[in-house]
Amino acid sequence: MIDRRTLVGGGLAAPFLLGGLKGARAQDGGPLKIAFMYVGPIGDLGWSYQHDQGRLAVEREFGDKVQTSYVESVPEGADAERVLRQMAQAGNKLIFATSFGFMQAVINVAKQFPDTIFEHATGFQTAKNVGIYNARFYEGRYVSGHLAGRMSQKKTIGYIGSFPIPENIMGINAFTLGAQRVIPDVTTKVVWVNSWYDPGKEAEAANALMDQGCDFIVQHTDSPAPVQAAEKRGVWCIGQASDMGRFGPERCLTSVVDDWASYYIKTAQRVMDGSWQSEDYWGGLAEESVVLTPWNKAVPADVQAELDQLVSEIKNKTTHPFQGEVKNQAGEVVVPEGTVISDADLLKMMYFVQGVDSTLPG
């Protein structure tokens, strides 16, 4: 049975859903209470939707050993800190904050609740009771870049970004490097919409890029609007976060899917058995934290074989998207030949590689 409530305050009203109770007990004799904070609506069919699928997987795995809840569409700012504080005050002992922009709010609130465990997605600040987790989205972007290189005729790719943060930038760069495997002189044009979820802006950005001659559309935003726009105009595209093929059955060639379920289950288990420790977790294609959906039938068989081989090479670590030599737009070597970029450098990536036709906001 699900008890539907509303959490209101500070100008924000958001649904607070409490999952059903089903098995073993936490320290107070009840279930482990776990809360999730989402930057977008769970109906975005992208980023927040996939995180919520992970929450539901935790419920299925543990039954009445856990009690889960979530707050959706939380702005990245003062509201995030308020919601986190309310979650902790409500007795949640494990809280997942699922957007980069929640980072400072997590650090601030974690200091006030040292007995509560906080997990922050895609950030880089940790504490004794704060762990961070990330997915190597860039691995999927690199493969989809290779796919774009094979399918693009105009050598001009359109990329819709949400915010100019390292998570987005490494995706744009990895995609461009993947495309350069096939088209050395490819151009990636970037439009920032300054929102994770805004179907109207995302569709406008997609159409603007296609008007500029882009014959392939990629996104790091959360609605299916870019895929729908590309489908309507007969342009190849890649889906984001969840399988968006249903919105572009003819033109969406694959989707780079985030699968958080295994990490959420593992983390909940560690909290319940007392083995949780703050860590910096990365999962990618090998861990199936990042998954590429089956290739569209429009992708030629020989190209599908190339893509499958590339996925295998990334999984077994014989290929890395940021294996040197890599140069930035100014021609400076940022990853020397024979080396692979470190995770620490990925997390602070604030430059574009050669081939990206855009500038970062000053």
Rank of each mutant, 00 (worst) to 15 (best):
residue 1 M to H: 07
residue 2 I to Y: 12
residue 3 D to R: 08
residue 5 R to L: 13
residue 8 V to L: 10
residue 14 A to H: 08
residue 17 L to M: 13
residue 18 L to P: 04
residue 21 L to Q: 09
residue 21 L to D: 13
residue 23 G to N: 06
residue 23 G to V: 03
residue 24 A to T: 09
residue 36 F to R: 03
residue 36 F to E: 07
residue 37 M to Q: 13
residue 39 V to P: 06
residue 40 G to R: 12
residue 45 L to M: 15
residue 47 W to P: 01
residue 52 D to F: 07
residue 53 Q to K: 15
residue 55 R to C: 08
residue 56 L to K: 15
residue 60 R to A: 15
residue 61 E to T: 15
residue 61 E to L: 10
residue 67 Q to Y: 05
residue 67 Q to V: 13
residue 68 T to Y: 06
residue 69 S to G: 15
residue 71 V to N: 15
residue 72 E to Y: 13
residue 72 E to A: 07
residue 72 E to K: 10
residue 77 G to V: 11
residue 81 E to L: 05
residue 85 R to A: 14
residue 88 A to H: 09
residue 90 A to T: 14
residue 90 A to L: 12
residue 91 G to C: 12
residue 94 L to K: 04
residue 95 I to A: 04
residue 95 I to M: 09
residue 96 F to S: 06
residue 98 T to C: 14
residue 99 S to H: 08
residue 100 F to S: 06
residue 106 V to Q: 02
residue 108 N to A: 11
residue 109 V to S: 06
residue 113 F to Y: 14
residue 120 H to F: 10
residue 122 T to W: 13
residue 124 F to C: 00
residue 125 Q to V: 11
residue 133 Y to W: 15
residue 141 R to I: 04
residue 143 V to A: 02
residue 145 G to C: 09
residue 146 H to E: 08
residue 150 R to L: 00
residue 151 M to P: 01
residue 156 T to F: 04
residue 157 I to M: 10
residue 158 G to L: 02
residue 160 I to P: 03
residue 164 P to G: 04
residue 166 P to G: 05
residue 167 E to C: 00
residue 168 N to S: 12
residue 172 I to G: 05
residue 173 N to Q: 10
residue 174 A to G: 04
residue 174 A to N: 04
residue 179 A to R: 02
residue 179 A to V: 01
residue 186 V to A: 03
residue 190 V to W: 05
residue 190 V to G: 02
residue 191 V to G: 04
residue 193 V to P: 01
residue 199 P to Q: 10
residue 200 G to M: 06
residue 200 G to L: 10
residue 202 E to D: 13
residue 202 E to N: 06
residue 203 A to T: 14
residue 205 A to T: 12
residue 205 A to S: 13
residue 206 A to S: 09
residue 210 M to Y: 10
residue 210 M to F: 12
residue 213 G to T: 12
residue 214 C to W: 01
residue 216 F to E: 02
residue 217 I to N: 00
residue 220 H to C: 07
residue 222 D to C: 11
residue 226 P to E: 08
residue 231 E to L: 11
residue 233 R to A: 11
residue 237 C to I: 07
residue 245 G to I: 02
residue 247 F to D: 06
residue 250 E to S: 14
residue 256 V to T: 15
residue 260 W to R: 03
residue 263 Y to H: 15
residue 265 I to A: 13
residue 265 I to S: 13
residue 272 M to H: 02
residue 274 G to M: 04
residue 278 S to H: 11
residue 279 E to D: 15
residue 283 G to H: 11
residue 284 G to F: 06
residue 284 G to C: 05
residue 287 E to Q: 12
residue 289 S to E: 11
residue 291 V to M: 14
residue 292 L to R: 08
residue 292 L to S: 01
residue 293 T to N: 12
residue 293 T to K: 07
residue 295 W to L: 08
residue 301 A to Q: 07
residue 306 E to T: 03
residue 306 E to R: 00
residue 307 L to K: 00
residue 307 L to C: 09
residue 309 Q to H: 11
residue 312 S to D: 14
residue 313 E to N: 10
residue 313 E to I: 09
residue 315 K to F: 12
residue 317 K to M: 08
residue 318 T to V: 14
residue 319 T to E: 07
residue 325 E to C: 00
residue 325 E to L: 01
residue 333 V to Y: 03
residue 340 V to K: 00
residue 341 I to L: 00
residue 343 D to F: 00
residue 344 A to S: 00
residue 344 A to K: 00
residue 345 D to F: 01
residue 345 D to I: 00
residue 345 D to K: 01
residue 347 L to D: 03
residue 348 K to N: 06
residue 354 Q to I: 10
residue 356 V to H: 02
residue 361 P to L: 04
